[in-house]
Each structure stands twice: as C-alpha cells, then as structure tokens.
Computed example of a mutant assay.
Amino acid sequence: MAGEQKAKAKTEQAKGKVKEAAGRAVGNERMTAEGRAEQSKGDVRQSKEKAKDAFRH
C-alpha cells in the first residue's frame, strides 16, 4: 500500500506541473493555481509517506 501511495504522490506532482505549465502558456491563472494545488497535494502525500517510513525503521 505504501508504494501505491508514493506512486500516487508522484503522479499528482507531475500532473500539477503539467497543468501549471499549460496554464502559464495560455495565460489562464485559474489553471496555473489548480496545478500548484495539485503539486502541493502530492507534496503533502509524499511527506506523509516519508514520515511513515521513518517510523517503520
């Protein structure tokens, strides 16, 4: 399960980066903000998984 969550975090981060870049390219501030939010969500998920790993070992 932990591997699945880590992969989901990376996916969210990547999707967020793409969405942010696309928003900037077309001048859509809302899309840019949504992309940043997705990246942040992925960052939080990744941090949570790293903390879990630290306590497991």
Rank of each mutant, 00 (worst) to 15 (best):
E34I: 04
G23T: 11
D53I: 00
R30L: 13
K17M: 06
G16V: 04
K48W: 04
T11Q: 15
A7K: 14
K10A: 14
D53G: 02
G23I: 14
V18T: 14
A25I: 03
A37D: 07
K50A: 08
R36S: 11
R36C: 03
A22V: 07
M1S: 08
E34C: 00
K41C: 04
R56C: 02
K10F: 02
V44D: 10
K17I: 01
V18M: 10
K8N: 09
Q46M: 12
A22D: 15
D43Y: 02
A21C: 01
V18H: 12
T32A: 15
Q5E: 09
G42Y: 05
E29T: 12
K15A: 10
K48F: 09
R56F: 03
E29W: 11
R45D: 15
S40K: 12
A9W: 04
D43V: 03
A51M: 09
K17A: 14
K50D: 15
A37S: 06
A2Y: 08
S47R: 06
V26I: 15
A14Y: 06
E38M: 07
G42K: 04
K52T: 09
A14R: 12
H57S: 07
R24C: 02
A7V: 05
V44C: 00
K19S: 09
E29I: 13
K52Y: 05
R56D: 04
M31S: 03
K8M: 06
A33N: 09
K19Y: 02
S40C: 00
A25H: 10
Q46I: 04
K6R: 14
A2E: 11
E29Q: 15
K48A: 13
A7G: 01
G35K: 00
